[in-house]
Design a protein around this nucleic acid. Structure first.
Lengths: 136, 136
DNA sequence: TTTATTATTGCAACATTGTTGCATTTATTA
DNA sequence: TAATAAATGCAACAATGTTGCAATAATAAA
């Protein structure tokens, strides 16, 4: 059994189908997942929980720090904490994949922070375009 | 009168208070504005249109290409077309400001595109942290 | 395996936001 | 100033967010 499942059980939580599916979907789709997208992904797995269940499930997982809620421009995104990385976003099929790039940005961050009197704690970098399949 | 206003009038559109305010707010807050945030910003200007008005106004401006709708991870953001740039996002007060950085990214783009068999058409780069005011 | 416990779920009800037709208002033109 | 039609607010319904409560199901105990 994986670490997340252990964490849940050791605190009295139960491993229901819905809960496991949500964790699976969030693990599979690395990040930038809204509640609506999550529901969509669950549907493709034939799992259609009541909307109050999803609502409370995300509360539960967030409270347990198994999932973190990321709010960008007023919109909530949910994700399982991961190492820092960047994204390729396909405008054709919506696929979001991780990429690793060098640490040029770390150097720039320092410079930008000084120039703008800004305390930078994180950054995000996304490349938009079309994946191999969608180029056809 | 500015260019946008001319564009509207020359196509039979009218310059109402709400329309001008929406254009003003979108110009002032460079980007990543959701409908909800726009409504909030209008309120601080004592402008409280019916929600159907905002809904139709954004349709109108988008159809006229005065405003572009940007959908990221299923969420719609509205903005007035601008030159490419990047952002500083304050996690304290939500302020989003533009920054200019070098063109290191253009070089990396080419490399990433080849490595991943991906046709990159755009990218976004945001730095998150705390602005001068919010560091207190 | 069967039973008891209680976490989790679905349902119902209400709140908030999205969407559209229609009558009224108001920006613009003559 | 009056006429025209663009834009607005309102009402009604749809979709989604939120919460209490009874039914269900995951786990522990027997």
């Amino acid at each position: 059994m994986n670490t997340i499942h252990k964490t849940i059980q050791s605190s009295g939580g139960r491993l229901t189908k819905t809960r496991k599916a949500i964790i699976y979907v969030l693990s599979e789709n690395c990040c930038l997942l809204t509640k609506a997208t999550l529901i969509e992904k669950l549907k493709t797995k034939k799992i259609k929980p009541n909307r109050s269940t999803i609502y409370r499930e995300l509360q539960f997982l967030t409270k347990k720090n198994i999932v973190i809620k990321n709010t960008l421009a007023g919109v909530d995104y949910y994700e399982i904490p991961q190492d820092h990385h960047h994204h390729l976003v396909c405008l054709g099929c919506g696929l979001i994949s991780k990429i690793e790039i060098g640490n040029h940005l770390k150097k720039q961050e320092k410079q930008i922070a000084e120039q703008n009197n800004f305390n930078i704690v994180n950054h995000s970098l996304e490349f938009y375009g079309y994946c191999h399949k969608c180029q056809a």
